[in-house]
């Protein structure tokens, strides 16, 4: 995935930057990029995109006129795909924003263009204790028939949402809820943009789930966290409002075995992704 995007001017000044996920420390990266710009002055890339491996990252760079364009991606990424995205970025920038950048004007509207090009995946982690209906929620989101037999998840089950949301592929990480797998939770929610904490709406489970909210806030503070008050069809269910009060996160009602909740749930996730983006921008 593309972890961050940088556009630098002739003197190595950062004209635009955006981080989608953690990579190298930003300060040392910028210093490296400034040196890269200086180095590229003596080179002619002939309009091509080149890359180099640095630690676990692969740094793709291209030059047009006075500008240097950089993607920080992973070594595992498909180089051809990233090069295509670089071409799109360069063309978009040169066509509509190069003059603004030269005049040191704000690049209004460029951010969303970068999102369209660079955002490829949004990770939504589904977390909760065993038997609360996480996998059923996953099936509901994917519009799949529910299995008749409960088959506990081992580790993590990763599936895509069939629909795209805001030009992003939504990857759903359904984490095993059994306590023996709890050692995996912190690692598995890394880089999640949205974490959905599923409860079965019983008082006992909701109180236990407070620990999950703390874990998520510690491990992925930038993620948007929402609660799901599942099994609302059962007589022992607390109301979503009460569950939300206990967990201190926005919480929504659900009956995961009822297909009519699907669209509503997708809307909630869509809203969370957008709110998450807006919060990052505001920060």
């Amino acid at each position: 995935m593309i972890r961050s995007v940088y556009i630098l001017g002739q003197e190595g000044d950062v004209l635009y930057s955006k981080e989608y996920a953690k990579s190298e420390s930003k300060a040392s990266l910028v210093e490296f990029l400034v040196n890269l710009v200086q180095f590229l002055k003596s080179m002619d890339l002939e309009g091509k995109t080149e890359f180099m491996n640095v630690s676990i990252s692969r740094i793709f760079f291209a030059q047009r006129e006075l500008f240097t364009f950089v993607f920080i991606a992973d070594k595992a990424d498909d180089a051809v795909q990233i090069e295509d995205k670089m071409t799109q970025l360069v063309e978009t920038f040169m066509k509509d924003f190069a003059n603004l950048a030269t005049a040191k004007q704000p690049l209004d509207g460029f951010d969303s263009k970068v999102d369209e090009i660079a955002v490829t995946m949004v990770k939504v982690a589904i977390l909760g204790f065993a038997g609360v209906g996480k996998t059923t929620t996953l099936h509901l989101l994917r519009g799949e028939t529910l299995p008749l037999v409960h088959d506990p998840t081992i580790g993590v089950s990763i599936k895509r949402l069939p629909e795209e949301v805001q030009n992003a592929n939504i990857v759903l990480w359904d984490l095993a809820g059994q306590s023996r797998f709890s050692i995996l939770w912190a690692k598995m929610i890394a880089n999640a943009q949205v974490v959905v904490i599923v409860t079965d709406s019983t008082l006992e489970n909701v109180l236990r789930s407070k620990k999950l909210v703390t874990l998520v806030k510690d491990e992925v503070p930038e993620a948007k966290v929402i609660g799901i008050a599942n099994k609302q069809d059962l007589p022992t269910a607390l109301t979503p409002e009460r569950v939300g009060q206990i967990l201190s996160i926005p919480t929504y009602e659900l009956v995961a075995i009822d297909i009519s909740y699907r669209d509503r749930l997708i809307q909630i996730i869509r809203k969370s992704i957008l709110e998450g983006k807006a919060e990052i921008k505001a920060a």
């Binding site: 992973d74 595992a76 990770k123 081992i154 580790g155 993590v156 089950s157």
Partner: peptide, 26 residues
């Protein structure tokens, strides 16, 4: 284990070696 795509088998030998998500998880 990629933070977004999950488990990715980068290399395998022989190429016919069949692996499941459960195996990779365990």
């Amino acid at each position: 284990l990629d933070d977004f795509q999950g488990f990715i088998v980068k290399k395998r030998h022989p190429s016919s070696l069949a692996l499941t998500e459960t195996m990779l998880n365990l």
